[in-house]
Design a protein around this nucleic acid. Sequence first.
DNA 1: CGCTAAATATGATACCCATCATGTAAATGT
DNA 2: ACATTTACATGATGGGTATCATATTTAGCG
Lengths: 187, 187
Amino acid sequence: MKVSREQMAENRRRILDVASRLFRDKGFDAVSVAEVMNAAGLTHGGFYGHFSSKDDLIAQTLAHVLAADSGGGGDLRAYVDAYLSPRHRDNAAGGCPTAGLAAAIRHQTPAARSAMTEGLRSQIDRIGKALPELDPADRRRAAIGSWAAMVGAVILARAIDDAALSDQVLEQTRAWIDAGISQVSAG
Amino acid sequence: MKVSREQMAENRRRILDVASRLFRDKGFDAVSVAEVMNAAGLTHGGFYGHFSSKDDLIAQTLAHVLAADSGGGGDLRAYVDAYLSPRHRDNAAGGCPTAGLAAAIRHQTPAARSAMTEGLRSQIDRIGKALPELDPADRRRAAIGSWAAMVGAVILARAIDDAALSDQVLEQTRAWIDAGISQVSAG
DNA sequence: CGCTAAATATGATACCCATCATGTAAATGT
DNA sequence: ACATTTACATGATGGGTATCATATTTAGCG
């Protein structure tokens, strides 16, 4: 059952999109190749026509989703608010791939690690550029510190089994970042 | 081959210690029951005499390691420095269980989530108590914000496949936290 | 319009792992 | 000392999953 060139390209895109959501939602290990293919509307047989292995799928999915992932470029305040919202915490499947997958990268192949590294590098740069009021040294510090706090807070908020404390982690981290950025720029 | 009561208790402790290291090093999924038992000097057969399932082992291991884990109680500055050191980044097996396992808790049982929640609650309290110079509202904000940044920075530093950038994430996060705490207390 | 190659489907295969069944020997209590 | 219980070892069992083999259908091309 051959399909058109362009149909195949679309299938591939759908596999990557669906894999990206499933991986963020359930983790790399808990998602099977067959599950990804079924979610993409295909069967498991065609998988190895698109990818050489599950590890290959993981690496290509990361490159795909991290390239698509923007955010932090425009209004930083709004971006931080959305990032540290209960809505984002509760939407891992559609949320930031760094918050969802960074911790699992340690156990993946070099290609996957490399994709994540590039994604982080450009994300830090993007946040830095959204802080033009700071001088360069403060800017980099604020970009890295804020990003670490944002990712850490979402990971912790998702781990916590107590709605009030989880909300508080998000809210207080938002206030902490806010204070950090304002005070540096005032200093 | 029965062993003494106290030998059994020691075996159990060794299983939990070894499991804690293996889980932090390789993740819950990548460690088999047999691997844990072998590392503890036993065979896989006796496992279900100690634990009702692998999920039970995970929950009890978390309770065990999070109870043992202190840190942040004394000199906060020194604790942050050690936490955000390359040495800690490179020692996941012996390092902070939150940095190593918090992101994986989402996919675990309620018992495991509960253990992690209690560990986080007391860790935040501990950090707050190490900031007596701040007034209560600032104290809580600083404790949560710093802890989120610390955990996030170690996770990111471990994910990054570039020594210079990884070191920089640790170092800049340390400076960011330092500035945040000092400036709040000066304000 | 027919040929061929390619994309996917269907159907193995082989391995790993959590869990259970049963055997065995030593500790504990009387 | 002896009986009994119990902690652990050895050895299944069953289910899941990555990967491979083969069949099928149709796009792409002459």
